[in-house]
Design a protein around this nucleic acid. Structure first.
Length: 243
DNA sequence: GGCTATATTAGTGGGATAAC
DNA sequence: GTTATCCCACTAATATAGCC
């Protein structure tokens, strides 16, 4: 499997080899790039391709690499089919780009970082025509003006929809999650209750650990639905069942 | 029993591709 | 072109065996 495919390139049927690149990056960087692509009505590959074509390789090479995500910066994917259906999968945030083969993923990441810098107006771009005769006053191309409020309206709508969905999910989690026990976890039955097992259940060590991991991803205070009380009782329950 | 080496299992993440 | 997720290599964690 090399991820490379022949694709028809236009009406003349010229085949263009394309390659799928996986580019690990921080979730903030990914979100910024995707937002930029959406704002410009292009895809991420178009942005990377534009920068790689227009900017000299030395400029891209000299641009600081936005880098891999931090250790705790992960996205959770729930597998929707296959033998592992339903299993949460935590992986590095990433961008997927289809472009012609031969590029270094780090160079693509740098190019995307450069695109963000240009978009913010932190850097300007001068285009020169090498065939032009006497150099006229060089046109300075600045990044397109920031979208007007009118153009930004759909983004606000999308954000409102996302927030609404988040609130709904929080409500669902709160309804389904256990209520923290007022006196803490003091018996095996309570430990089983906290982990969502019936009081008479005899889950083996693997089942207990798997359940703990699943609940911890939901109730960890750093998550969107986190609860310090529930997380600490999950830890108490684990300690209790270990003994 | 305690320590170390080795084997086995589970988890993670990059790359890839099928489905849409 | 985008998205979902599978495949597989690699790593970490855990279990088991062997030795002292």
């Amino acid at each position: 499997m090399d991820g490379t495919k022949q694709e028809q390139g236009g009406a003349r049927g010229v085949s263009v080899v394309k390659h799928s690149y996986t580019i690990p990056c921080s979730s903030a960087f990914r979100d910024s790039i995707e937002a930029l692509a959406a704002r410009r009505h292009v895809n991420v590959g178009d942005i990377a391709r534009s920068v790689l074509l227009v900017m000299p390789p030395s400029a891209i090479q000299g641009f600081p690499d936005p880098g891999d995500p931090e250790a705790g910066d992960r996205e959770t994917v729930i597998l929707k089919s296959g033998p592992s259906q339903g299993r949460p999968w935590r992986r590095k945030p990433r961008l997927q780009v289809r472009m012609v083969p031969g590029y270094d993923p780090v160079a693509i990441r740098r190019a995307l970082g450069l695109a963000l810098t240009l978009d913010r107006g932190d850097m300007t771009l001068k285009l020169e025509d090498p065939n032009a005769a006497p150099p006229p006053p060089e046109p300075e191309i600045k990044p397109e003006p920031k979208p007007e409020p009118m153009a930004a309206a759909p983004d606000h709508q999308a954000l409102a929809a996302v927030n609404e969905e988040l609130e709904r999910l929080q409500a669902i989690v709160n309804v389904l999650a256990f209520d923290p026990l007022p006196g803490g976890v003091n018996s095996r039955a309570e430990a089983l209750h906290v982990l969502g097992f019936p009081p008479t259940a005899r889950p083996d060590r693997r089942m207990v650990r798997a359940r703990f991991r699943m609940l911890a991803t939901i109730h960890h205070p750093d998550s969107n639905y986190g609860s310090h009380d529930r997380m600490s009782q999950l830890n108490q329950a684990m300690e209790f069942l270990k003994e």
